[in-house]
Design a protein around this nucleic acid. Sequence first.
DNA 1: CCCATTTATCTTATATGTAAGATATTTACA
DNA 2: TGTAAATATCTTACATATAAGATAAATGGG
Lengths: 174, 174
Amino acid sequence: MTATALDDDRTAPASEDDLLSLRLWLQLMKCGKTVEAAAGGQLHREHRQSLARFDVLSQLHRLGGGWQTVGDVAGAVMASSGNITGLLDRMAADGLVKRRANPADRRSHQIAMTDAGRALFDRMAGNHARWIGDALDGVGERDKKRLIELLVKVRRSVENAADPEPPRAHRTTG
Amino acid sequence: MTATALDDDRTAPASEDDLLSLRLWLQLMKCGKTVEAAAGGQLHREHRQSLARFDVLSQLHRLGGGWQTVGDVAGAVMASSGNITGLLDRMAADGLVKRRANPADRRSHQIAMTDAGRALFDRMAGNHARWIGDALDGVGERDKKRLIELLVKVRRSVENAADPEPPRAHRTTG
DNA sequence: CCCATTTATCTTATATGTAAGATATTTACA
DNA sequence: TGTAAATATCTTACATATAAGATAAATGGG
């Protein structure tokens, strides 16, 4: 794996380790995009629903289908407030979810699946899981387990680096 | 790593292996989203540009900055034709790229960076690579190398499962 | 209690993405 | 040659996303 294997960029960063990080970064983005396109395509083809909608329904399904605040759902699916508002508007217009005022906090609204939403999710979930199994058929069980651990490690690293993390000193790498 | 570690879903698919695939899938999506949000945030904060624009400029930079067709750029950044049209429109309006008719094919248009685009990219590239190095500081060199290999394996598996694989073999990914 | 701050959501403007299909051009082949 | 098919891009309609800021309600310190 010498430098000649690298026809992937011309950004020419400084250190050997920055170079490796950049290659990993590119693969993460590329793999993420491929995975998202494939999963989104499957959901659209077979259920006419987006990945974002499936994520929302999954989250609403998790606690048995009870009421959850808009903020809880937004946090779980990593959506911004403006994003989740529009998404839930459209899903409610399609009869998949319902809103109500939060009885404990008048600033807050709550969300739950409708019967139609639950029925749709039940249909999607099993089908999608099977499709995922097929899509990852080329990856061995040992590799899958390793990957899960490594991806969690990456996510932690990125989240920690993104946080200001006030008290501790942090290398700036000038 | 027993089943008790799994508080992440209630979709309850059939087999043990489908379950593992589903967990990997969820981590891939979550990690991808985190990575994309972090990278996009950095580019927006420090350069007021989106990740998509950075990707386009990276691709235009690769072959020394010469003219490339719209289709080449779209393929490299995995954008649809409608998507790339609007993206390039806005980038051209901002003076970052320029268009011309393809002298060899009158259906086709070509794209290149303007001087301003190249100057912007040069500023962004080094800065972004350093930031990535920091963001991945919590992942060891050995893990980075493993991850790159495993991510490529996942991408191949997903792409093969998605393709009908009609008559000829066509390896798009190097 | 009063007020500043925080929190939860919505609004607006805009950017980015897909799907479906139109248009113009090139290519392949009978 | 003529024409069907493929190709490259653009158009349209709409879904999904962010940023910035507005609004309303809860919270906490004086």
